[in-house]
Design a protein around this nucleic acid. Structure first.
Length: 660
DNA sequence: CTAGGGCTAGTG
DNA sequence: CACTAGCCCTAG
């Protein structure tokens, strides 16, 4: 009921808009297409054009990427888009020589509903219309490829659906912390020699390990830096300029990596300084600008290569643990920013990964507070012990024992001798003793956790004094429960989201509240985020809440026009992910027009009628929401209901009924 | 309330 | 270690 009421307004507005749209659209269609056609050459500067070209070529060349792309969460939409695109870009495709023949058919009308699209995966009408031939060809090879490629879709539902529960046996290794079975394997560290030495020189075992304090390397770094910088600049340019070029991309990337690597210094000392200098700040503020050679480049910009692996030293690990105790599990950035803790250019993500390996039990503990306490106790014990045993060593630099949950007091490292056993038991194992209940996942009960920590008390008490000296802060009581657990979006949710978008536009709260859509368990922002990641194009192009205003709007100006071709293209084309997202990501154009569907008009291009809200009928039907639609096969459904749609643009919305 | 952007969990 | 996707915070 409520929903109905709520919807009404929408409907009305929609109705009003619809007619207009259709009218407008029809005429536009041609123009658009022609325009597109006119841009025959892939060479065109036009971004969209370029992109397509590249994509296509890529496709034809190698399917390497396909696999990833192929898995499309919403194949339908994509395909849809692809289809549209293909048509639109006929010439281009031809150029690329893809086998696909350009369907003479019409372009994908903007007015098409995405939803509809979704439902009808690539097979759709246009196949019928246009291409017999195509179909065959596609089957042969391209079809799939070309389609999927263009769109680079999100994830296939399949993945989502069955993703393995994290729970299983977590074969985690305590890695560094656990001493090898054989003493022989270990370096003489504890023996009384200074641990610091050990720490300083990373791994004797590896031998290969890079010596942090190697002056030579420093020199080399310096020497190269200028060059590097230059290259970097260039590279960046290239990257910016040519996101499309796959081939180049790879190369570039590579270079980039190398460069960066070279540039950055690997010594711990350096890192300290950097940090002190406010590197962290830099990182945050200007992630992308890493022109200056010295600074630690942002992790993101860094390429991946094994050359620069930096093993975690005991010191770092110890500091990490201190940080966890101090700031709480999960607050990696906070830990990272602690001045007293030294990390070798680690990122928050690195800390997380390390911690996960080091203390899986704590990482996975349902009660972070408890885990933190235990961790603290363990750490304290360990350090104390070490201290006692080897007076030589400095407090913080002891070699880490494995910090198992052993809770209190006793020995922190139960299993030095018997790693296997521990490994057998999945992570949580030890936890149970301390907080079996928590395992249930009930997280919670903050009460129990904290202050008085009974179990912990012993150790803490006893070492409390020392803790400070050891650099172990009071246990941070995290209220971590705040963060909701991650729940991947299901295909049904995605569908609902799309429908919601179609109906409500960017009014996420309305979508969230729409009972029909059944998205109440998500927050409005969650929906927005999801949409943002899944349909970046649409999101970007799309609108704003104010969308309604759209009606009023006139297409007078069209800044957007220049920007990228027709909006519809964009949306449809949704190019979700540039392969190298991270770096590129930052640059989202901030100026958005924010209109969902109808309004987009920007000028010439009305856009996404596709997203137009459904007619009233929709609501009703939506109530039923057939599973079919939802469950749907993103993949392919030749349902062709729509067989004719493209040609006649006017009819778009029919889909809603189906949806319903 | 939403857009932006940051942060973190999870995965390859 | 890189990368993605979900969650969170904050400004407008």
């Amino acid at each position: 009921m409520d929903s109905t009421g709520a919807l009404r307004p929408l409907d009305e507005s929609l109705l009003r808009e619809l007619p207009q749209l259709s009218l407008r659209i029809a005429p536009l269609r041609e123009p658009v297409s022609s325009r597109t056609l006119s841009i025959p050459s892939p060479l065109e500067p036009n971004a969209s054009g370029t992109r397509e070209t590249s994509t296509i070529s890529k496709t034809s060349v190698g399917g390497g990427n396909l696999p990833s792309n192929t898995k499309a969460g919403l194949p339908t939409v994509k395909e849809f888009l692809n289809a549209a695109r293909t048509k639109t870009a006929e010439p281009i495709s031809t150029d690329s020589q893809s086998n696909v023949e350009p369907p003479p058919k019409p372009i994908l009308p903007a007015f098409v509903n995405l939803r509809a699209l979704e439902r009808f995966p690539f097979s759709s009408s246009f196949d019928d219309d246009a291409l017999h031939g195509q179909r065959k060809r596609r089957r042969l090879d391209l079809q799939a490829e070309s389609f999927s490629e263009h769109l680079q879709l999100p994830i296939p539902q399949a993945q989502k659906e069955h993703r393995p529960p994290p729970f299983g046996p977590f074969a985690i290794l305590n890695g560094l912390n656990e001493p090898p079975p054989n003493a022989a394997l270990l370096p003489p560290i504890e023996a009384g020699s200074s641990i610091s030495q050990l720490l300083t020189k990373p791994s004797k075992r590896d031998g290969a390990a890079v010596d942090p304090s190697n002056s030579v390397s420093t020199n080399a770094t310096i020497a190269e830096s200028p060059t590097v910088e230059r290259r970097e600049g260039r590279i960046e340019e290239l990257l910016d300029a040519t996101l499309d070029d796959d081939d180049n991309d790879d190369d570039v990337d590579h270079d980039h990596d190398v460069v960066q690597r070279t540039t950055r210094s690997d010594f711990p000392e350096a890192s300290k300084q950097d940090r002190e200098n406010g590197v962290l700040e830099n990182r945050k503020t200007t992630p992308f600008s890493a022109p200056t050679g010295d600074e630690p480049l942002s992790p993101k910009s860094r390429g991946r290569s094994r050359k620069n692996l930096r093993k975690w030293t005991d010191e770092e690990t110890t500091d990490l643990l201190r940080g966890v105790v101090k700031c709480g599990i999960g607050n990696w950035t906070a830990i990272l920013s602690q001045p007293e803790l030294k990390f070798n250019k680690r990122t928050a993500s690195n800390l997380k990964d390390r911690f996960r390996v080091c203390c899986p039990w704590a990482y996975r503990a349902s009660d972070p507070n408890e885990a933190t306490k235990q961790l603290r106790d363990n750490l304290a014990n360990t350090l104390l012990k070490a201290q006692a045993e080897c007076l030589d060593s400095k407090p913080g630099k002891i070699h880490l024992p494995n910090l198992n949950p052993v809770h209190t007091g006793s020995e922190p490292s139960p299993s030095p001798g018997s790693p296997p056993s521990s490994s057998h038991k999945p992570s949580t194992l030890s936890m149970p003793s301390a907080t079996p209940e928590t395992d249930h996942g009930s997280l919670s009960t903050p009460q129990q956790g904290y202050p008085s920590g009974k179990s912990a008390s012993t150790a803490s008490d006893k070492s409390q004094k020392n803790l400070a000296s050891l650099g172990i802060p009071e246990a941070h009581i995290t209220i971590k429960s705040k963060r909701r657990s991650r729940r991947p979006f299901t295909t049904a949710e995605d569908e609902a989201l799309l429908k919601g978008y179609a109906v409500h536009g960017f009014q996420w709260t309305l979508i969230q509240q729409d009972k029909r859509l059944d998205l109440g368990h998500r927050r409005a922002t969650d929906l927005r985020d999801r949409f943002r990641t899944k349909f970046p194009h649409a999101y970007r192009d799309g609108g704003s809440v104010s969308g309604k205003t759209a009606n009023s709007q006139t297409p007078s100006q069209s800044p957007g026009a220049g920007r990228s071709g027709s909006p519809q293209d964009r949306i449809l084309s949704n190019e979700p992910t540039p392969t190298k997202p991270q770096s590129s990501s930052p640059r989202r154009p901030k100026a958005h027009s924010r209109r969902p569907s109808s309004i987009s008009n920007a000028n010439a291009g009305p856009l996404d009628p596709a997203f137009l809200p459904p007619p009233q009928g929709f609501l009703e039907s939506s109530a039923n929401m057939v599973p079919a639609a939802l469950s749907f096969p993103l993949e392919d459904n030749p349902t062709a209901a729509a067989s004719s749609p493209w040609e006649d643009n006017t009819l778009a919305p029919m889909v809603w009924d189906d949806l319903g």
